[in-house]
Simulated assay, not measured.
Amino acid sequence: MTTTSATTSTTAQGDDGAAAERVASLVVAELERVWAAIIRRHPDVPPVVVTLASGTVGVPAGSITLGHFAGARWEHLERGDLAELFVAGEGLARGPRDVLGTLLHEAAHGVGHTRGIRNTSRQGRYHNTEYKKLGMELGLSVAKADPIGWSDTDVPDSTAAEYADEIARLGAVIRAHRRSEHVALTIGAGAGAGDDGETGGGEDVRASNNNGVAALCGCEPPRRIRVAPSVLTLGAIECKVCGEAFTGPDEQDKAD
């Protein structure tokens, strides 16, 4: 089995431009190779299209979506449907071992997809005991993190030793990472257009939302309310239909 990549390269000129174009593509190529190495060890892991993008757009400050697996998101002209593996550019800052952990975490979801095992609920946020089994099968240590279930995964020393070559190769190509959308970015004097075409000039670019956050319950499909984050921290808001607490984006996005 092989993987297919999709990423956006930058347009630049000269030697520096050529180097800039390789920042993302080298990482994506290595992510593909690591995924192929996981498939060799676990044949039920499906082939994927690898995407590298932001994991902090649309999530609350302090949160990051490190990775995500989704089945049949791409349609190939010859091979039919392909799954998607998303990896956050911000997560590259965590280092190659943790990046491997993200891939193994998502590969466990991939095995569940191949075998038809329901391993999550609440739109993929809650990881049940079936996911715990799959994560351990892939070589992860798995701990429970309420209220999102068995989603706290880590790469133990034994698995790191097994994937030592892959970790080393990832370390060799990860030379940059994406800034969080939640970090103020000062655009230097004389800079050109900022993000979304806005003109730079020393402004602080910050993410803010004064309308509260979306909180979801355990119903299928979940019911949604908007609430101030400070209210959520005061205690559980229980859904009278399913009996479960509404969870905010911090709990929804930690693991996936």
Rank of each mutant, 00 (worst) to 15 (best):
A176F: 11
H177M: 00
R179N: 10
R179G: 09
S180D: 09
E181W: 15
E181R: 10
E181N: 13
H182Y: 06
H182R: 05
H182F: 08
V183E: 15
V183H: 01
V183K: 07
A184V: 02
A184Q: 08
A184C: 05
L185V: 14
L185S: 05
L185H: 08
T186I: 10
T186K: 13
I187T: 15
G188N: 09
G188Y: 02
A189N: 11
G190Y: 04
G190A: 04
A191H: 08
G192W: 01
G192V: 08
A193W: 02
A193E: 14
A193M: 07
G194L: 07
G194W: 02
D195V: 11
D195A: 15
D196F: 15
D196H: 14
D196V: 12
G197N: 04
G197K: 10
E198Q: 11
E198Y: 12
E198L: 11
T199F: 02
G201D: 02
G201H: 00
G201W: 02
G202H: 01
G202E: 01
G202L: 00
E203M: 05
E203G: 03
E203L: 00
D204H: 14
V205N: 06
V205D: 02
R206N: 01
A207P: 03
A207E: 11
S208C: 09
N209I: 01
N209D: 14
N210Q: 10
N210F: 07
N210E: 14
N211V: 07
N211R: 13
G212Y: 05
G212T: 08
G212D: 07
G212E: 10
A214L: 09
A214I: 12
L216E: 13
C217L: 07
C217E: 02
G218L: 07
G218I: 02
E220T: 14
P221K: 07
P221V: 01
P222D: 04
R224K: 15
R224N: 11
